[in-house]
Computed example of a mutant assay.
Amino acid sequence: MLKSSVAALRSIVIVAGLAAGVAVAAQSPSLSMLGRLEPGQWQLRFRDGSPAQQICLKTGRELIQLRHQNSKCSRYVIEDGSDEVTVQYTCRGANYGRTSIRRETGSLAQVESQGIAGGLPFQFTAEARRTGTCR
Score class of each variant (00 low, 15 high):
Ala16Arg: 00
Glu62Ile: 01
Cys56Glu: 08
Thr90Phe: 04
Phe122Gln: 11
Ser113Cys: 02
Glu38Thr: 12
Tyr89Ala: 06
Thr125Cys: 03
Ala7Pro: 07
Cys73Gly: 02
Met1Tyr: 07
Thr131Tyr: 00
Asn95His: 08
Gly97Thr: 02
Arg135Ile: 03
Pro121Tyr: 01
Ser100Lys: 11
Cys73Pro: 08
Ala19Gly: 10
Thr131Met: 10
Pro39Met: 09
Ala26Tyr: 06
Cys56Thr: 14
Gly17His: 08
Ser71Pro: 03
Leu120Ala: 13
Pro51His: 10
Ile116Gly: 04
Tyr89His: 09
Ala117Asn: 14
Ala126Gly: 10
Gly81Asn: 13
Asp48Lys: 05
Pro29Arg: 02
Ile101Gly: 10
Arg102Tyr: 05
Leu18Glu: 02
Ala19Pro: 06
Val85Gly: 01
Asn70Trp: 00
Gly118Asn: 12
Ser50Leu: 03
Gly119Pro: 09
Ala7Trp: 00
Arg10Ile: 15
Ile101Ala: 13
Leu34Ile: 15
Glu79Val: 07
Ala94Met: 09
Arg102Ala: 11
Cys73Gln: 03
Gly17Ile: 09
Leu18Thr: 04
Ser11Ile: 04
Pro121Ala: 07
Ile116Glu: 03
Leu108Ser: 14
Gly35His: 06
Pro121Lys: 08
Thr90Leu: 12
Phe124His: 07
Gln43Met: 10
Leu120Ile: 01
Leu34Tyr: 14
Gly93Thr: 15
Gly132Asp: 09
Leu63Asn: 03
Lys72Leu: 12
Ile14His: 04
Gln110Thr: 05
Met1Arg: 06
Ser5Cys: 05
Ser113Tyr: 01
Gly97Asp: 08
Ala52Gln: 08
Ser32Gly: 07
Val13Ser: 02
Ile14Asp: 11
Gln41Phe: 04
Gln88His: 13
Ile14Met: 14
Arg67Met: 15
Gly17Phe: 07
Ala25Phe: 13
Val22Arg: 06
Gln69Glu: 08
Ala23Cys: 08
Val111Lys: 06
Ser50Cys: 04
Gln27Lys: 07
Ser82Phe: 03
Glu127Gln: 15
Thr133Arg: 05
Arg102Met: 06
Pro29Ser: 05
Gly119Val: 12
Ser4Cys: 10
Ala117Arg: 09
Gln65Glu: 11
Ile101Asn: 00
Thr59His: 11
Pro51Tyr: 00
Leu31Gln: 15
Ile55Ser: 11
Ser100Tyr: 00
Ser32Lys: 12
Gln110Tyr: 11
Ala19Thr: 12
Gly119Tyr: 08
Gly115His: 00
Phe46Gly: 04
Gly93Ile: 08
Gly21Leu: 13
Ser113Arg: 05
Ser74Pro: 01
Leu66Ile: 14
Pro39Asn: 15
Leu37Gly: 00
